[in-house]
Design a protein around this nucleic acid. Structure first.
Lengths: 168, 168
DNA sequence: TATTGTTATACTCTATAACTATA
DNA sequence: TATAGTTATAGAGTATAACAATA
């Protein structure tokens, strides 16, 4: 049976066998898949963070939405959805929650009354600051695994990929 | 209001503003969060692949499970779950599906009759080959965005982080 | 007619607990 | 008593369609 091989396969040396209760297991062809490698560390990075924020009753994506609202005063809901990659209907729940917490306000746009201008409040900014701190603290171990050059290289590679994928 | 800053912040130059229908929007503090950057490209990478495989009736994780079974002949279900990071009950459905398709077999382990030894079939290997090809084809644009050195640096950084996170 | 926001709904994924058979 | 596998079920997340208000 023939298995396809990744391009530049020589760069893709196998991941150390995953050890479960002393016995080593292999990942097989998954070693060739870059997306799988990224998935694993993302799952590890996100698990604890999700656990913490869900205790606060926050939906996944709340942090991102709040950050986008803070950075773009008066942005319309639909643009928050587009920028953050959310479903528009999911945002309705998130913003209902933000209003209930006093983190953001909705107001009709006078120049286009279909639109709701969304603004962050001072309480929202304070909450955002706390959420950012948690997020940074959460990925601290990942950052600390790399030296300055390695971190810069990772950042460079990720942004190059994003630019390529997003613009094509 | 004070916002916390990421360590090594100087390396984290802002992402180019995301343009939606001509208007540029900012990502604000999200620029500092490495996990957010990785999330965005992973979502882009996975979207099309998920779409294709779900048309085939495959559950998310089927590719990974099949690869692990292929690489570890006779592995027990619970070890597939541990290695791949799956919920054990989710694996039951995945393996039921594999058996129905003739991709894998389950058999009692004579030395411990609680365990099911899982083996891939020739048809399963063929299916795995096709899934791998799709996965590699899917991330081709991401690989092509990087030169040889950049790809090696990305791989190095990801594996260093994984090793650190997994062993701590 | 198209767009923004909303509601309702259905479908999927995940997590939990309970059950069996084996050790 | 603990483990491997299974089943059933409830909860959360996501996606879809339909609707009201506005352009």
């Amino acid at each position: 049976m023939k298995m396809p091989k990744a391009d530049k396969d020589d760069l893709m040396t196998p991941t150390p066998a995953t050890s479960v209760s002393g016995t080593p297991f292999k990942l097989g062809v998954l070693d060739q898949v870059m997306n799988f490698r990224m998935l694993r560390i993302r799952n590890l990075l996100t698990a604890r963070y999700r656990e913490e924020t869900s205790k606060l009753g926050l939906r996944p994506g709340s942090f991102g939405a709040l950050a986008i609202i803070e950075a773009n005063p008066g942005i319309a809901q639909i643009d928050v959805a587009k920028v953050g990659g959310y479903d528009q209907t999911a945002l309705v729940c998130i913003l209902d929650d933000f209003e209930a917490r006093g983190w953001a306000t909705r107001a009709r746009d006078p120049s286009d009354r279909r639109r709701h201008r969304v603004e962050i409040t001072d309480a929202g900014r304070e909450a955002l600051s706390g959420l950012l701190e948690r997020a940074l603290q959460n990925e601290r171990p990942a950052r600390d695994a790399l030296d300055t050059n390695e971190l810069a290289a990772l950042r460079n590679a990720i942004d190059k990929i994003y630019t390529r994928l997003f613009l094509s």
